[in-house]
């Protein structure tokens, strides 16, 4: 019930995503000095997570970098788009860190959720969720917590948090607003050729 309400909330109060602002500029050397790879393609350091190529890094305010990295991997496993980089998924879950900074109960809910996911991974013989190699196995782990409020909060948040990003529209071939360009009337509204 709770989870459904959460979702309805995301429906009526979509958060606008301005994630880029919180992406810190960081050099690769600095990054490697301050960090450790933890499985997956993510690097965590104190107070930040980053892509393994150091093309982006995200400061984490309230959650531990490990927790944040787990949320990023969860986001990818929930809606796996192989053509999209981790920074898009990081931007999609960033709001949870912001909310956790203001709401300690929320923070605990996220941390407990990640703990239970890692516990399930250990039972399966893996060091952690992030260290679980195949998507199919991680999906199995997610399935085991699917009805929990934690999972539904993350998934529900992604519907808007992920798919309302301009970068995602570009990747999926959606051009959006056309009014400023005079509409699609002279820009291909009827240009289909293959039929």
């Amino acid at each position: 019930m709770k989870a459904e309400n959460e979702q309805a909330l995301h429906f009526t109060k979509p958060q606008s995503q301005t994630p880029q602002s919180s992406f810190a500029k960081i050099t690769r050397r600095e990054l490697l000095k301050r960090s450790a790879a933890i499985g997956g393609s993510l690097i965590v350091g104190s107070g930040f997570i980053a892509g393994s190529t150091a093309s982006w890094a995200l400061e984490v305010k309230s959650l531990s970098p490990d927790t944040m990295a787990t949320l990023v991997q969860m986001a990818r496993d929930i809606y796996p788009h192989d053509s999209m980089g981790d920074e898009i998924y990081a931007a999609a879950v960033k709001a949870h860190d912001d909310k956790a900074a203001e709401d300690s109960e929320y923070k605990t809910m996220l941390e407990t959720g990640v703990d239970s996911l890692n516990a399930a991974a250990k039972q399966m013989g893996h060091a952690s969720y992030l260290a679980t190699g195949w998507e199919a196995e991680r999906t199995e782990l997610l399935k085991s917590i699917e009805s929990d409020g934690f999972f539904q909060t993350i998934r529900g948040g992604l519907v808007v948090g992920l798919y309302n990003q301009k970068a995602v529209w570009d990747a999926l071939g959606y051009e959006g607003s056309s009014y400023e360009k005079g509409g699609y009337l002279n820009r291909g509204f009827d240009d289909i050729k293959w039929l």
Partner: peptide, 8 residues
Amino acid sequence: ASCQQLGF
């Protein structure tokens, strides 16, 4: 005005 095929 007439429709400019804005799509919204």
